[in-house]
Simulated assay, not measured.
Amino acid sequence: MAAVAEPGSLDNVRAVLAAHRTDLTRRYAAVGTGIGRPDPAGPYVITVYVTEPALVARTDESVDGVALRFVLTGPFQARRT
């Protein structure tokens, strides 16, 4: 039997992000997503990088029990290494 990740664990947040990344990107016209921990003693959150300033004020959004944090940014560009 596979182990189930604790609800607030990094493994759980990774699984939630993997399951919802495409939907989050479409819904919020996001330029990227990731995982963060704004407060080192607090829970992990899904960070949604957006170009629309109005989204940054949203603080009560969540998906599958994981809080969303919106960060205003410009477009991301891949760099050749």
Rank of each mutant, 00 (worst) to 15 (best):
Y49P: 07
A29L: 14
A15R: 14
V45S: 08
A19S: 00
T22K: 15
D11G: 11
V31H: 03
G8M: 14
V63T: 13
P43V: 12
P43R: 13
N12I: 11
G74R: 08
T73W: 09
A30C: 07
P53Q: 09
A15G: 01
A30L: 03
P7S: 05
A19D: 12
G34M: 03
Q77N: 14
A54I: 00
D64T: 09
V48Q: 01
L24D: 05
F76L: 12
A3H: 12
T51E: 08
T59D: 14
E52G: 10
A29G: 14
I35R: 01
P53N: 03
S62A: 15
L24S: 11
L68T: 07
A19P: 07
A30P: 10
V16N: 09
I35E: 09
V63L: 02
T33E: 02
V4W: 09
T59F: 02
D60G: 15
V45L: 05
Q77G: 15
A29V: 12
V71H: 01
G65R: 10
D60W: 00
A41I: 11
V16F: 06
T81I: 11
R14L: 11
V48P: 02
D11I: 08
D39L: 09
T59Y: 00
G34A: 02
D64E: 14
L24H: 10
S9N: 07
G8V: 13
I35S: 06
L24A: 06
L24N: 00
L24P: 03
R14I: 06
D23Q: 12
R26F: 13
L10W: 13
A18M: 02
V4N: 04
P43M: 07
T59A: 12
A2Q: 13
P53Y: 03
S62I: 00
A41N: 00
V13G: 04
G36T: 06
A18R: 14
R27Q: 15
P38K: 06
V66W: 00
A5Q: 06
L24M: 05
R58V: 14
V50R: 03
I46W: 08
R27S: 13
P7A: 02
G42S: 00
D60C: 09
A78L: 08
A15T: 13
V56D: 08
P43I: 12
V16M: 04
V48Y: 03
V13K: 04
V50Q: 11
V31P: 09
A19C: 04
N12V: 12
G34F: 08
V71K: 01
E61F: 10
G34N: 11
L17S: 03
G42I: 11
A19H: 05
T22Y: 11
A15V: 03
T73F: 05
T73H: 11
Y28I: 06
A67T: 04
G36L: 04
L72V: 05
A30N: 05
V13S: 06
G32K: 06
A15Q: 15
D23Y: 10
V48D: 10
F70V: 08
